[in-house]
Design a protein around this nucleic acid. Sequence first.
DNA 1: CGCCAGATTGATACACATCAATTCTCGTGG
DNA 2: CCACGAGAATTGATGTGTATCAATCTGGCG
Lengths: 249, 249
Amino acid sequence: MSAMMDSAAVAARTTGLTRPIAALCEPRSLKTHQTAPAHGREGTDPLLQVAAVVTYPKNQTIYYEGDEAEYSFRVLSGTARLCKVTEDGRRQIAAFPTAGDFFGWADQETYNFSAEAVTAVTVEKYVRRRVEEAMRSDPSTSRRVLALLSSQLASAQDHLLLLGRMTAEERVAAFLLEWAKQCGDTRAAKTTVELPMNRRDIADYLGLTIETVSRTLSAMKRDGLISLSSTDHVRLNRWAALERLATAA
Amino acid sequence: MSAMMDSAAVAARTTGLTRPIAALCEPRSLKTHQTAPAHGREGTDPLLQVAAVVTYPKNQTIYYEGDEAEYSFRVLSGTARLCKVTEDGRRQIAAFPTAGDFFGWADQETYNFSAEAVTAVTVEKYVRRRVEEAMRSDPSTSRRVLALLSSQLASAQDHLLLLGRMTAEERVAAFLLEWAKQCGDTRAAKTTVELPMNRRDIADYLGLTIETVSRTLSAMKRDGLISLSSTDHVRLNRWAALERLATAA
DNA sequence: CGCCAGATTGATACACATCAATTCTCGTGG
DNA sequence: CCACGAGAATTGATGTGTATCAATCTGGCG
């Protein structure tokens, strides 16, 4: 996923692609990597355009908390982060949207979290007003959006338990498993997870410090739970043991 | 606390009232008739029922995490709590739904948090399948549900910052203000907030222990930020100071 | 009045943060 | 190809905020 990063010192580039709203209503899991969509390349009339495909380079801000919530997004490839920073610099990351994930839907006027690119990230960018129109005419669109939202809600709620009640070790274990699962690595005995984000991002997601994350990973390595082939490649050696930690058994 | 417990050794009681789905979406009025009282956690024919008004006594479970998510709810009066408990007994409360709040919507098959009555709580109980039908025929219902869901999502995300990055003092300040605001007490210089939940509930909502909550409240009292006329009536003496704490300035 | 669950307060422990060096990684240019 | 930075990660020493353990205290109720 770092292949395209360099060329992306350029700011976000908007293609002229038009995407059908159907992409939102697809009944099947959206977690499939879909590369360049069918090139419909119809008229560039912005009014006819429902979704544009946009790529943001690593670390670029997609939108700021407080911005008018004019667009919503669906990730095609790469990883983003949704975060909030206090006045004195403390940061909390709410989620790392990856391929198939939806973000930026706000019913209020403004976004209440910022969105940034962890790696170079390609998204479908929807004009919210258009999506609302589509929902009005097509109930299945509503259902799809509803499903996406409620799955986001469930994730956020699960994360509350992690932040409120889990130990550092449990948080890290939960994080590794969550990432492994969503990478599609289905509990194969020994899977290797690639972590696109750095230690600070992980720490801010887990409500810990970089040092604690690092120490915890080192301890897990020492105990044989994981192996670290490189700083961002983790092999899960003892899935069951990690599961036990993650569920706070 | 045992005031009503006796009369309420009985399980939740379903009144004969029929509520139109209109409560969820102003314009329409699907009418159904359903008078069967029936005790227990169900007992009425769900197929005929769009929304029944049900009252749960203090501390009764409305549904369990993992139950099939057949109903969703809207609070008419009283306070509920949405919580999750780990195998070893740690508990996290995600929210305290009060009048007007919607809960129990899950797109998955099962609830992923339990719901319990903090005080006696009266709710509108919707058969989800019916709501889904209504959404299919009336887009405004979808919009309404969507708005409710996304506001829940925003609250949950805000709470992530609190649990992940705030100190005990900041958490308690944020909690008091949140409760004061949602009680409609509009920043009158000195407002008194009534807390329907006990210290354990507060602690489990804020990711702290009872002792820490208690100590923090005592310290705030000592410093003149608040007054405690009784254990569950807090007067906010210095709103601005509390706001400063709550926003982690 | 006296019970008892809930709340407060106190003493101490400990998990994680903070402060402070290294060590690792990797991109860059000689 | 290797030296060289410089940021990122790790590791170490120490501090501290909150948990834990343990008494009281309080207020509603029989």
